[in-house]
Design a protein around this nucleic acid. Structure first.
Length: 284
DNA sequence: CACCATGTTCCTTG
DNA sequence: CCAAGGAACATGGT
């Protein structure tokens, strides 16, 4: 589920659904995702709190909670690799990998996570380590140039560094570099002014396109297996459009580049797959 | 059985 | 202190 566009679309979807709702009780099914708190402390703190607004920071969801005494406090969520969050009727029953469930009475708010890499915490300290948001007005081409100039690591690896720019993940990193026509192996500091400019454009273009798609298409949030496994390459109920078809290079090794018909290549960088077109994204 | 997977953190080595 | 690389986390798909 989670890179910046998915989290953004989810936050927009959840905001009106959750705001002002009163938590009657909290059930923790997998203590790991709320560490270092005890199940008891976590549940007691949230019980009888209300949801205020929520917003996104990088790939994190930040819920503004209001205690029964009217005191605000944050609840920070991260979806890891396989986390989902959605409202559903209580009578429907819980998914196999429900991690935490908030009970509202008739409805429940479910956080499920197959691999349990995600997290819910009251500690917003993690957010202070995050780099600039891709849609921050301060992120100009010259800002980007300065952020990259002293770095020797491959640009693909830098794009995944959440302390530089927050929100880009492995899928969109490849997509952004393809759009910008920059070889993923190039060291960040070696990019020309034109390349930095193209990267800046591609960043916003690719991410906003993904957000626009996710905001337009009806999504199946609870994701019944086989219907909407993962929304950006899954499918919403009644929709024939697969988001995978919108990806130009990611997971397309051996297939033709949509721009020049050359075969897409897969390489490994920092133990993760990178996909690119060797003809459109040259080293020099 | 093998390998791969949208992410982050922690450990080791230099 | 920094950088780079890798394992670990846990489960499922192919």
């Amino acid at each position: 589920m989670p890179e910046l566009p998915e989290v953004e679309v989810l936050v927009q979807h959840l905001n009106p659904v959750l705001t002002r709702r009163l938590i009657r009780r909290v059930k923790v099914f997998r203590a790991k995702v709320i560490r270092p708190y005890s199940t008891d402390y976590f549940s007691r703190k949230l019980r009888r709190s209300r949801f205020g607004g929520l917003y996104r920071r990088g790939k994190y969801l930040v819920f503004k909670m209001i205690s029964s005494l009217g005191r605000p406090y944050p609840l920070v969520g991260h979806l890891g690799m396989s986390g989902r969050m959605y409202m559903q009727a209580k009578i429907l029953g819980l998914p196999k990998h429900a991690a935490v469930v908030f009970d509202f009475g008739q409805q429940v708010f479910v956080y499920e996570d197959t691999r349990y890499f995600g997290r819910l915490t009251f500690d917003d300290h993690v957010l202070s380590h995050l780099g600039i948001d891709p849609f921050d007005r301060e992120l100009t081409p010259s800002w980007l140039g300065r952020a990259l100039e002293a770095r020797q690591q491959a640009i693909k690896v830098i794009l995944l560094d959440q302390t530089v720019i927050a929100g880009i993940g492995n899928i969109y990193a490849s997509e952004i570099l393809f759009k910008a026509r920059i070889a993923p192996q190039k060291s960040a500091g070696s990019l020309s002014e034109q390349e930095v400019e193209r990267l800046w454009r591609a960043l916003r273009h690719v991410l906003s396109e993904a957000i626009a798609w996710g905001s337009t298409v009806p999504l199946n949030w609870s994701g019944k297996p086989g219907l909407d496994k993962v929304f950006y390459y899954g499918r919403a109920e009644g929709t024939a459009d697969y988001y995978a078809e919108k990806l130009r290079v990611y997971d397309r090794a051996g297939k033709r580049c949509p721009r020049c018909r050359q075969a897409i290549r897969r390489i490994t960088q920092a133990s993760r797959s990178t996909y690119y077109c060797p003809r459109c994204q040259k080293m020099n």
